[in-house]
Design a protein around this nucleic acid. Structure first.
Lengths: 152, 152
DNA sequence: TCCTAAATAGTAATGATTACCAAGTAGGAA
DNA sequence: TTCCTACTTGGTAATCATTACTATTTAGGA
């Protein structure tokens, strides 16, 4: 679980920035952001929808999709994860890195000072205007290793 | 374009490895691999299918999908690209990195000795068994900058 | 040349994502 | 507090990428 204080900081920032951007703060938007912001394993759309069903029985999938796209445009979340997987979202917008399980798609954050200090290589300017650099480690998570340790 | 010699090396390796793996070398498979291996911009399924239509008028989309999955399983290609995009494939299995355009999805390779020398951080072992480390630079490509230089 | 398991073509099915529109609501104005 | 309006939502239909299915074809060895 995310530390309570971090979660509250994120929610506070969200409220402030949303007002600045003239975005209405609806209960749905707040709830959806809260789920992403409170999660450590980068939930997908379906999972978010299910998790909110108790409190919002009528919440539509479309709203979840729309809201996540909105949050992404505003910079509150990032879509992450490997190809061949459904969309997953990450509310940690600080510089960090992802460990992704090749079998089950689990994504966990990790920190590494050396990776975070990496500069965008100058030769990418030949290709265009670089904006961000991401590092991703692929592997097999502990749960999957336990289920079936054999390689491949 | 990829250097002719590199392309031939890749095709040769493919033929050899396919025999070793007891995989039939059909004209379709060879042609599909050739398109990916000869391309610099990491084509998608639709693009590959279209490109082969002249020589294989009856080639089915399903065959393209199936073949690419097979090639991926055998380690000849990797699925690459950002979330929110359709599948794209890369036949360069040497250590290298990607520049991805946030607007049009274009993906180009680039080399960087410092990035290629990166070791997988030890702390990821807590999360599972890491196998690979990928670096991706996100930005806007030259063509998109030309079309519309304004940011965002 | 023949045989058989493996591969393909064509199309249907699936599953994720997006579009649409009538109904509801946040948030400012009176 | 009440009202008003533009913005949001819910529910569902439509779309699009990907995968499954099956009859037919073919690669590659005997």
């Amino acid at each position: 679980m995310i530390a309570k204080q971090v979660l509250e900081e994120r929610l506070e920032l969200f409220l402030r920035k949303a007002r600045e951007a003239n975005i209405r703060v609806t209960p749905q938007r707040l709830a959806i952001y809260r789920v992403v912001a409170a999660s450590e394993d980068h939930p997908g759309v379906e999972e978010i929808h299910k998790k909110l069903h108790r409190n919002f029985p009528t919440l539509s999938l479309d709203t979840v999709y729309r809201t996540l796209r909105l949050l992404e445009d505003l910079g509150f979340v990032n879509a992450v994860g490997p190809r061949r997987e459904t969309l997953r979202y990450d509310a940690n917008t600080k510089r960090h890195h992802h460990f992704t399980c090749l079998r089950c798609g689990l994504i966990r954050d990790f920190e590494d000072a050396r990776l975070s200090a990496l500069k965008i290589p100058a030769q990418t300017r030949v290709l265009g205007q670089p904006q961000d650099l991401r590092v991703e480690v692929l592997g097999v998570c502990n749960a999957c290793l336990k289920k079936n340790p054999k390689k491949k």
